[in-house]
Design a protein around this nucleic acid. Structure first.
Lengths: 147, 147
DNA sequence: ACCTGATAGTCAGGTACCCTGAAGAACTAT
DNA sequence: ATAGTTCTTCAGGGTACCTGACTATCAGGT
């Protein structure tokens, strides 16, 4: 009377495990940031801050660093500018270009995000052990070619 | 003369590492499947097969298993039906419901996918060592609460 | 038999996050 | 000057999800 076995791929493979862990991590980070008042940023916006510099960075440079099209980065910067996290100033050396710079609020978000990320990493270290988490990150670096 | 440091989050955190590894894995799997003639399926469609059974499964049940809305699962099944991977038969016990079943092509895709996933996992095991990959998967299970 | 409430699935519309193509303006090199 | 390249934006498209509203059917109680 047992039903047929799943036709499916059977076991939960590495891809699924990686994706689930990623979504849990990001979810936790953005939940905590939202609690601290940064509830208007979405994960994609983090890509803007990832390579932002105090002195200002061009849109095309941000796009190249993040590995997305300049048009996509432009939309993210539009959002963050509207939300008051970054500002555009025109590049004095190139009138085609604008430099993207963080505002005070942007700098505050980055400080908060750094703390939150570190806190979630510490929480995970408590869950699986500090050594295992370190090994996890090293292994991922190797697989990602960032060794 | 050094430029200002990045305002950004600084180091590449665990979330980024997990996402990169996930995308590399899925990319590799779907590249190989495409080489074997399964070039018309996208990653999202795999969610349909994940919990499919030979005897047929209801749309709502597939959606619940995959953790997505029934409407979203419906669209994925529409695609796979049009592409000849699954068929809908009406449930003899409930005229509201249809049962989703794999076709021969669907079963062939699942067999191919299982082999491809195993092959990519073996390739990654060679890269970082069998033990480290096993540890990686165990650690991810623990973090995901699948321990 | 009737009504009520729950369930299965679909239709319509919307959001997030990416893409390509095309175009205007400004820079660079000949 | 002209030609080619670069910076950015506009317009449009695709994937992968969502919620709300609707129809048809089922299951239970009166």
């Amino acid at each position: 009377m047992s039903s047929d076995p799943p036709v499916g791929y059977g076991h939960r493979h590495l891809g699924i495990k990686l994706r689930q862990a990623y979504e849990t991590f990001i979810g936790e980070v953005f939940d905590r940031l939202a609690e601290q008042g940064f509830d208007d940023m979405r994960p994609a916006h983090a890509q803007v801050f990832q390579n932002l510099k105090e002195e200002g960075v061009r849109l095309t440079e941000l796009a190249r660093s993040a590995g997305i099209a300049p048009q996509s980065m432009g939309a993210l910067v539009d959002d963050l500018e509207r939300l008051g996290y970054v500002e555009r100033i025109s590049d004095p050396h190139d009138r085609r270009a604008a430099l993207i710079r963080p505002t005070d609020r942007g700098r505050a978000e980055v400080r908060a995000a750094r703390k939150v990320i570190a806190a979630v990493e510490r929480q995970w270290a408590r869950t699986v052990g500090e050594e295992r988490l370190a090994t996890l990150m090293e292994t991922l670096d190797e697989l990602n070619g960032d060794a």
